[in-house]
């Protein structure tokens, strides 16, 4: 009987559940279940046998190993936390800047946008495999690196001109990092663009009539109205910086993910790898909660 006596809000809620149901089913099946399975693995030692794998319960041994015995893991986690704090603000500012430029009217802006989206397409495609393995593997030796032009040649050139090596290395390091960051802001630029396009033009016209300068309307209109996208991009960039598959030895990407991956698929220590992943996951969650607490309250939603 109660089912038919629902208030308007309740009914609205019911139809909402129908909207969200397909996603929940997909999520439980393809994400939550593997996730829980990997949590169970953290307490186990997994060994491969001839007919699959067998598990032994080892309690907290994997965690103890990560914190007290493994020489690399915790060190890399802390250094990747340090990186996130300066990388993410740069990514956000750079991508907002570029998005605002790309949102203006000028000839060939679709091409310009495509150019800034190229890194996203390239960095997940076959091309990267090629650039990594073949070119650098054969010609330049060790640099198994996506970032094509941060390579040795530039450094060598500067060294030959007779500048102090420390200055050269410092300088090329900065150039590499900047390049790396611009390279990683393709998705953020596109999200900012989408956000900027949802701002009604009439707002700018109104403020223009009232005599606001471009600077005013940037801070009073653009920033508040894209602030939900700023927080979205912030969260995305933090997660992306933390979970990007990187390379030990180079400053691009995240070394922790590589360690976790290698533990699982090169050393076949699957239980320990899961434990590492979970520790790392909890670290990321903590940092995001802090960031969200600080910035989340400044977000402005256009709700009357």
């Amino acid at each position: 009987m109660k089912l038919f006596n629902l208030s308007y809000e309740k009914k609205k809620g019911m139809s909402g559940i129908i909207f969200i149901m397909p996603w929940i089913i997909g999520f439980l099946l393809f994400f939550a279940k593997p996730l829980i399975q990997s949590l169970i693995f953290t307490f186990q030692k997994i060994s491969i046998t001839h007919d699959g794998f067998s598990t032994d319960f080892v309690g907290l041994d994997n965690f103890k190993y990560a914190f007290f015995l493994d020489p690399n893991f915790i060190r890399h986690v802390t250094s990747s936390i340090g990186n996130v704090f300066y990388e993410v603000p740069i990514i956000i500012m750079f991508s907002l800047f570029i998005a605002i430029i790309l949102n203006q009217r000028f000839r060939g802006r679709v091409i310009a946008r495509a150019v800034f989206f190229l890194p996203v397409i390239i960095s997940s495609g076959v091309l990267v495999v090629l650039l990594k393995n073949d070119i650098f593997g054969n010609q330049l030796g060790s640099t198994a690196n996506v970032y094509l032009f941060e390579s040795q040649g530039f450094t060598d050139l500067l060294l030959k001109t007779g500048i102090e090596p420390t200055i050269v290395l410092y300088f090329t390091d900065i150039v590499n990092r900047i390049f790396d960051l611009t390279w990683r802001s393709g998705v953020q630029i596109l999200m900012f663009l989408a956000g900027l396009q949802t701002i009604p033009r009439s707002y700018y016209e109104a403020s223009d009539i009232e005599g606001a300068t471009g600077w005013d309307s940037f801070w009073k209109i653009t920033v508040p109205l894209v602030s939900p996208i700023i927080i979205l991009n912030m969260v995305y960039s933090i997660i992306d910086t933390f979970t990007q598959y990187g390379d030990t030895g180079s400053n691009s990407g995240n070394t922790v993910v590589r360690i976790i991956y290698n533990t699982a698929f090169a050393e076949f220590n699957y239980g320990y790898s899961s434990a590492q992943a979970w520790i790392y996951f909890i670290v990321i969650v903590f940092i995001l909660i802090i960031v969200y607490r600080i910035i989340g309250r400044k977000v402005f939603y256009m709700v009357e």
Binding site: G16, F27, F31, T243
Partner: peptide
Amino acid sequence: HDIPGKKIIFSVVVLSLMFVSQVTFIPQ
């Protein structure tokens, strides 16, 4: 909408973004 458990669902969404996806290969 005001659906029950909305906040929980959203935090689960954000949390699930943060997991290193390589680890779920085998369970998947």
